[in-house]
Structure formats: structure tokens, C-alpha cells
């Protein structure tokens, strides 16, 4: 049989990565076996599973355990098999999620109707949405200012570290290590409740901005350092040999080459900073989580908390997508 070069290349690479299959694998991978066991599993689900509700008897618990293991094992035969087509694997993956959800719904013993009433009692929230949106505004304001300040701090510290002065580096490394190690909640509480004893007091929003800027400035400076370290030393030598000053070299040669490296990790850091604005409710900043907790108390319902979670999702998912997009773009540019 004539073999094209493409097929031989493919055969070679797959042979390289393929383990030799033991004999039982050949009949386990056979379509008849897979179809037969799938039908058996469906029959099991229809006729052999215990009645709905939390299983009390040991036999019922074992029954559910065996069924779960069998479902997982069957899915693994498809999902772990690299030769299966993508569409089949997706169907099995979604099917698996569906079956597990169905099992949980049926046997967790939760009172779903009561839960839904408590968590998604939107009627109770009517007229109070503006309070949550007010909180969102404060969250975004804090996020925006802190983003600006932490990028500024990060760039400044990163640039200072390129000077390579041992004494300066000692102080800068100390700053970075200290503020990367202190949890954001602790940092905010210390600034808000402890510093006033030293005569330095900030309002709650200012505390949040200062804590986030200093803390995330430390992270940002590490991204900038990575960006500068990615630059080949010959670039700096060439720039200096042309007579460019250190600052000109930084501005025209190093920063433009570092920024594409810095931006993906920086956007990641800024997204986690936006999430950390929620910590500000500890120091009574009137941001989204604080507002949700107030409503939780006044309405005696967890619905506002669920609502705030949804608002965070709606705001932050597009940002994480944007971060990924930027990362993709920057990889292409370079």
C-alpha cells in the first residue's frame, strides 16, 4: 500500500507517544463493548437505583457508590482515549456533568424549593438594587485608582531595580517581599485601625486604595522585573554604544520591549486586585460586598449576597477574557 509522507510522519509521532496497549485494552476499546456497557448503565439508572432522597440504608449508599464509580469508569474509557474524536469526548463530558448533577439533585436530600426561595428571592430585593449598584460604583472607583497607582509603583520599582545598585535593591526587595507576604485583609486592618495610633489616619476608601496600591504595586513590580529581564543585554549595550543616556535607553529601548511581556501578567494581577476590593468591607468602605451585607442583615435574606456574587461575575469575567485576549495578542506581536 502506498504511504504518503504525511501519514508516515503522523504514524511516527503517534508511535513515539503511544504506550503499548495490554491485551485487555483491545476489547475494552471495542465499539460493541462500549455500546453494550452504555445500555447496561442506562438500564441500571432506570431500574436499580434507590428511591429519591438522602440514602439511609447502607445498601442504598453502596448502590449509589457502585453506580457512580461505573459511570466514571465508562466516561474515562472515552475521555482518556486520545484517539476518540473531539465531538464524542465533549458529548461524554457534558453527559457526565449532567448525570452527576442529576444524582446530586436526586440524592442530596436538600429541599430545593426552600433553598430557591431563600437564595433567589428577587422580590425582596426590589427597590434595593440601587444600593448594590452604588456599591459597585465604589468598587470600580477603588479598582481604577488602585490600578493606576499600583502600575505606577510597579513600574517605578521595576525601573529602579534595573539600576542594579545593591543597597537600593535591598530596600526594594524588602518592600516587595514584605507586601507580598502580608494578606490584604491584614494590611487594610493595620492601616485602618493601627496607624491612627501613630498619627496617620486615612478614611475607609483611602485606606483601601493605599493598601491595594502598595500591596499590588509589589506584585506589579515583579512583572516589570520579569519584563526587563527578558530583554537581551546586547540591546542595552547597543543603545549605550550609540550614546543614548540611561533614561533614553529605558524609555526608547527597554520599556517598549518590556511592555508586551509585562501586560499579560499585569492584567492578571489587576483582575485579582479588583476581586480583593471586597476585602475593603472589613474597614467599612461602602463597596459592593459591604452593601450586600447590609442588605443581608436588613432584609434577613441571603439573596443580596447571591446578587453581589452575580454582579462580581458579570464585571470580572469580561475582564479575565480581556486579559487572555491581550496575552494572545502580545504573543503574536512578539
Amino acid at each position: 500500500m502506498p504511504m504518503t509522507t504525511a501519514t508516515t510522519a503522523k504514524a511516527n509521532t503517534s508511535a513515539k507517544f503511544m504506550r503499548s496497549h495490554p491485551a485487555w485494552m483491545h476489547w475494552v476499546r471495542h465499539p460493541y463493548f462500549l455500546r453494550g456497557t452504555l445500555v447496561a448503565l442506562i438500564l441500571y439508572a432506570l431500574f436499580l437505583l434507590p428511591a429519591p432522597g438522602a440514602p439511609a440504608a447502607l445498601a442504598d449508599k453502596l448502590n449509589l457508590g457502585v453506580f457512580t464509580v461505573l459511570v466514571l469508569a465508562w466516561s474515562a474509557l472515552i475521555l482518556a482515549d486520545g484517539d476518540r474524536p473531539d465531538w464524542l469526548q465533549s458529548i461524554v463530558a457534558f453527559g457526565l456533568v449532567g448525570v452527576m448533577g442529576w444524582l446530586f439533585y436526586r440524592y442530596s436530600g436538600a429541599h430545593w424549593d426552600k433553598l430557591a426561595a431563600a437564595f433567589f428571592d428577587w422580590g425582596r430585593l426590589s427597590g434595593s438594587w440601587w444600593l448594590l449598584l452604588d456599591g459597585l460604583k465604589v468598587t470600580l472607583l477603588i479598582g481604577l485608582i488602585s490600578t493606576f497607582l499600583s502600575v505606577l509603583i510597579g513600574a517605578a520599582v521595576g525601573i529602579l531595580r534595573t539600576l542594579g545598585s545593591p543597597t537600593l535593591n535591598l530596600f526594594l526587595t524588602a518592600y516587595i517581599d514584605i507586601f507580598r507576604s502580608i494578606p490584604m485583609a491584614v494590611l487594610m486592618v493595620v492601616i485602618f485601625f493601627a496607624l491612627p495610633y501613630m498619627g496617620i489616619s486615612f478614611g475607609s476608601i483611602a485606606t483601601t486604595v493605599v493598601a491595594l496600591s502598595i500591596g499590588y504595586g509589589a506584585y506589579a513590580s515583579e512583572s516589570f522585573r520579569a519584563g526587563f529581564e527578558a530583554i537581551h543585554y546586547g540591546q542595552i549595550e547597543a543603545a549605550r554604544a550609540l550614546g543614548l543616556s540611561r533614561w533614553q535607553c529605558m524609555r526608547m529601548i527597554m520599556l517598549p520591549q518590556a511592555i508586551p511581556v509585562v501586560i499579560p501578567s499585569l492584567t492578571g494581577i489587576l483582575v485579582s486586585m479588583l476581586k480583593d476590593t471586597a476585602v475593603a468591607s472589613l474597614v467599612a468602605s461602602p463597596e459592593l460586598l459591604k452593601r450586600a451585607r447590609e442588605l443581608y442583615t436588613s432584609k434577613a435574606s441571603p439573596t443580596p449576597l447571591v446578587a453581589s456574587a452575580l454582579i462580581y461575575l458579570v464585571v470580572i469575567i469580561p475582564l479575565t477574557r480581556l486579559a487572555n485576549l491581550l496575552e494572545h495578542r502580545m504573543k503574536k506581536v512578539r
Binding site: H232, G234, Q235, E237, A238, A239, R240, A241, L242, G243, L244, S245, I253, P256, Q257
Partner: peptide
Amino acid sequence: INKLRTEMGMVFQSFNLFPH
């Protein structure tokens, strides 16, 4: 030294052109 280096051109083994 920056002024002085303007009187001396340098060509490197690895070219070191600015890629951006």
C-alpha cells in the same frame, strides 16, 4: 561618556538591532 560614544560607532557580533 554618552557624548564621547557618539564619536565611536560599534558593531556587535549579534547585531543587536532594536526588534521593535
